[in-house]
């Protein structure tokens, strides 16, 4: 009597709480891991643009000239590629979804100018993760460099080339975004961003 079985299930639901929620009166409970929207900590962003390049949905636009970070909320697919690849870890994924609406939301954030280092000639010796100043460039003190290649392997933009045999260290300045990852990873602390 399978018909009776479904009858019991159906009649049983009359006396149970509804399986659905009275949205939007009853708020949705978010899980800790829910990928809802991307948030940015503007104080540590260095406008390197890696998030823009990695975004599969082309939802992020970073402008170094106007120092803005822009995200098209309706275009973002919440994959988290930007969060994973951000060298300064200034992007985070938060649980709440963007509110539904008739218009495509674009959020623009202004990135404050990075503070100029107090003494540019003497950068932090411990590989400080402070945002490097815009302008200038990445330099290597080849006297103390051991040409280990860690900087090249960790460079998110493949801007550094290290030739161990010929003891050569080169940086493609057009590709370098001065994220400072190489400076942090360098075991001999021979890299500086000026």
């Amino acid at each position: 009597m399978a018909t009776f079985k479904i009858g019991k299930v159906v009649l049983g639901s009359l006396f149970k709480k509804p399986a659905t929620r009275m949205y939007p009166v009853v708020a949705r409970e978010w899980q800790d891991r829910t990928r809802g929207h991307v948030e940015i900590d503007v104080t540590s962003c260095i406008t390197c643009g890696i998030c823009q390049r990695k975004c599969p949905a082309n939802a992020i636009t970073v402008s170094r000239d106007t120092r803005t970070w822009e995200i098209q909320r309706m275009q973002c697919v919440q994959c988290g590629a930007c969060v994973d690849n951000c060298p300064k870890k200034c992007l985070t994924m938060k649980p709440e979804y963007t509110a539904p609406g008739g218009e495509k939301v674009i959020d623009t954030f202004n990135i404050p100018e990075a503070p100029k280092p107090a003494a540019p000639a003497a950068p932090a010796a411990d590989g400080d993760a402070a945002a490097p100043a815009a302008g200038g460039g990445l330099k290597c003190d080849t006297d103390s460099c051991v040409f280990c290649g860690l900087c090249a392997r960790n460079c998110p933009c493949s801007a550094i080339t290290v030739n161990r045999d010929e003891k050569q260290w080169t940086v493609d300045k057009s590709a370098c975004v001065q994220c400072g990852l190489c400076v942090e990873k360098c075991p001999k602390k021979c890299l500086v961003i000026e």
């Binding site: 479904i6 399986a19 899980q31 891991r33 829910t34 990928r35 919440q78 994959c79």
Partner: peptide
């Protein structure tokens, strides 16, 4: 029957959301 099948499916989607962060696309 259709509604009840999908009611049970919701529990599985909740498990997905808890473990992956997404209900349909998991990444």
């Amino acid at each position: 029957l259709f509604m009840h099948c999908w009611r049970i499916r919701e529990h599985v989607l909740d498990l997905f959301e808890k473990t992956t962060g997404g209900r349909v696309i998991f990444s």
